[in-house]
Simulated assay, not measured.
Amino acid sequence: MDTRLGEYVDDFTRRDWQTLDPDSVEDPVRLALVGAGWFTRDWALPGIERSAFTEATVVTDVDADAVDAVASEHDLTGVTPEAFRAGDVADEYDAVYVATPNATHLEYVTAAAEQGKAVLCEKPMEATAERSERLVERCEDAGVPLMVGYRMQSDPVARRLKDLVDAGFIGDPVHVHATMSQTMLGELTGDPDQWRLDPDLSGGCALMDIGIYPLNTTRFVLDADPVAVSGHTRTEHEAFEGVDEHADFRLEFPDGVAATCSVSQNAAHASRLEITGTEGRAILDPAFYEREERELAVERGGVRMDVEVDPAHQLEEEFAYFGHHLLTDTPFHPDGRHALVDSRALEAIYESAETGETVPLRR
């Protein structure tokens, strides 16, 4: 194995984007939380609180009881969605984190943009590509920064994987295999009456909710965008009627590189990302879940190296990145224009699933 590998895996959890000393931050970025669901409570809020660059100050949700509970537990100002959209407490936050059902992102991001607040919007950015475009335009027209919550891009494991690919340790990438699956009604909730199973709110299920992880992470690691896609979806369980339960799709990148991806909302919990090149391969397994420690393996010349990964809290890294870049007035990546590629790709995969044809992506 190339001795230079140590240059990339030593100090594995380093923040290669950080220039500001966390101890010097007296006034962290104040965040309004839009959406008080389980992900906000269990992962986003702890990440915000662990980050030296951010603090939560306001929370809103259509569920008044959830607002009261979160506000009380974390000493936040709780407001109704109507009060938030009206800007009643806009002086209490600098930026807005939107974690509501996909089809409601646009209205809340629009309100934040009209208030002149920076936005961190969960992915997928919206339920359709057209609404995603409108969301990006609202922020651009208002001149407010927009970051999209692709937490894998600030995860040190994914960043070191990208470093290794960029450095040529596996040669030129040839193909990618990625998978992500879970038993959604068992792991997340046993209640089939939820927004992910409502196509009007989610835009789809397996592809929209978890297919975006292999799609976007592959784009990030390869530093390339797909030029065409194809896919297939299927639904068997009655709870998933009207949305996709399982999906398989193929991404075609420039120079003939292809990614084959499989996702499921009703299969054994697993995730894996494997990138094969002309001289070796890199494997991240498990890959995409925020609640798991990831392991990275690099194979080259008949030798395999397994890298022991120091665990990092993905949401802490994401919010630290967001707050840091606001405080230093540094452009975000991933931004809204980056996320639009995913929105268009997901829509094209659904189109391919209906027509059976490969669908080219517009630039």
Rank of each mutant, 00 (worst) to 15 (best):
T260Y: 08
C261Y: 00
V263C: 03
V263E: 00
V263Q: 01
V263P: 01
Q265K: 04
Q265G: 01
N266Y: 02
N266E: 00
A267R: 00
H269L: 01
H269S: 08
H269D: 03
A270Y: 00
S271K: 01
S271F: 01
S271I: 02
L273A: 05
L273N: 02
I275D: 00
I275W: 03
I275M: 10
T276P: 13
G277R: 02
G277K: 02
T278K: 06
G280V: 09
G280H: 04
G280A: 08
R281M: 07
R281A: 08
R281K: 12
A282Q: 05
I283Y: 03
L284M: 14
L284Y: 06
D285T: 11
P286L: 02
A287C: 12
Y289H: 08
E292I: 04
R294M: 11
R294E: 09
R294N: 05
L296G: 12
L296E: 15
A297H: 11
R300S: 15
G301L: 04
G302Y: 03
G302D: 13
V303A: 15
M305E: 15
D306N: 15
D306K: 14
D306A: 11
E308A: 15
E308I: 07
E308Q: 13
V309P: 04
D310M: 07
D310E: 15
A312S: 15
H313P: 09
H313K: 00
Q314V: 13
Q314A: 13
Q314L: 11
L315T: 04
E318I: 08
Y321V: 01
Y321D: 12
F322W: 05
G323W: 07
H324M: 05
H325G: 09
L326V: 04
L327W: 04
T328G: 09
D329I: 04
D329C: 06
T330K: 13
T330L: 07
P331Q: 07
P331D: 11
P331F: 04
F332Y: 10
F332N: 10
H333I: 04
H333K: 12
H333A: 09
H333E: 14
P334E: 06
P334D: 08
P334F: 05
P334A: 09
P334Q: 07
P334N: 08
D335R: 13
D335I: 11
G336E: 02
R337N: 15
R337A: 14
H338F: 13
A339G: 13
A339L: 11
A339R: 11
L340A: 15
V341A: 15
V341M: 12
D342V: 14
D342R: 10
A345G: 11
L346N: 08
E347Q: 14
E347P: 04
A348N: 05
A348G: 11
E351I: 11
E354Y: 03
T355L: 06
